[in-house]
Amino acid sequence: MKRAFLFFFVIGLAVLAASCSIDDDQTNFKYTTLKTVNASLPDTFELGRVYKVDVNLLRPDDCTYSETFDVRRSFTDSTNIRTVAAIGIVLDEGPCEAVNDSIQDSFQFEVIYSNPYVFQFYTGDDENGEPEFLEIEVPVKHRR
Rank of each mutant, 00 (worst) to 15 (best):
M1S: 15
M1F: 11
K2E: 14
K2Y: 14
R3S: 15
A4V: 15
F5S: 10
L6Q: 13
L6Y: 14
F7V: 12
F7N: 10
F8A: 10
F8L: 15
F9H: 10
V10S: 14
V10F: 12
V10W: 08
G12I: 03
L13F: 15
L13S: 11
A14W: 13
V15H: 09
L16H: 10
L16K: 11
L16Q: 10
A17F: 11
S19Q: 07
C20L: 15
C20Q: 11
S21H: 13
D23T: 09
D24Y: 12
Q26C: 06
N28L: 11
F29A: 08
Y31N: 09
Y31V: 05
T33K: 14
L34V: 01
L34R: 01
T36P: 07
T36H: 04
T36A: 04
N38P: 04
P42V: 05
D43Q: 15
F45N: 00
E46N: 14
E46W: 03
G48T: 02
R49M: 12
R49E: 15
V50G: 08
Y51S: 00
K52W: 02
K52G: 01
D54I: 08
L58V: 06
L58Y: 03
L58F: 09
P60I: 06
C63N: 11
T64W: 03
T64G: 03
S66N: 11
F69Y: 15
D70G: 07
V71K: 08
R72Y: 09
R72C: 06
R73C: 06
S74F: 05
D77K: 08
D77P: 01
S78C: 05
S78P: 01
S78A: 12
T79Y: 09
I81N: 08
V84D: 02
A86N: 04
I87V: 15
I87Q: 05
I89D: 01
V90D: 14
L91F: 12
L91G: 09
D92A: 14
E93D: 12
G94C: 05
P95M: 04
C96T: 03
C96F: 05
A98G: 06
D101M: 09
S102C: 04
I103D: 01
Q108V: 02
F109K: 00
F109W: 07
E110N: 09
E110I: 06
V111P: 01
Y113F: 13
Y113P: 00
S114C: 09
S114G: 11
N115D: 13
N115E: 13
Y117E: 05
Y117Q: 02
V118R: 06
V118Y: 04
F119M: 04
F119P: 00
Q120L: 12
Y122E: 00
T123C: 12
G124L: 07
D125L: 11
D125P: 01
D125C: 02
D125T: 05
D125K: 07
D126W: 04
E127H: 06
N128F: 12
G129C: 03
G129Y: 02
E130R: 11
E130F: 13
P131D: 07
P131Y: 10
P131I: 11
P131C: 06
F133S: 03
E135I: 08
I136N: 02
I136E: 04
I136A: 03
V138N: 00
P139C: 08
P139D: 06
V140S: 03
K141F: 12
R143Y: 08
R144H: 13
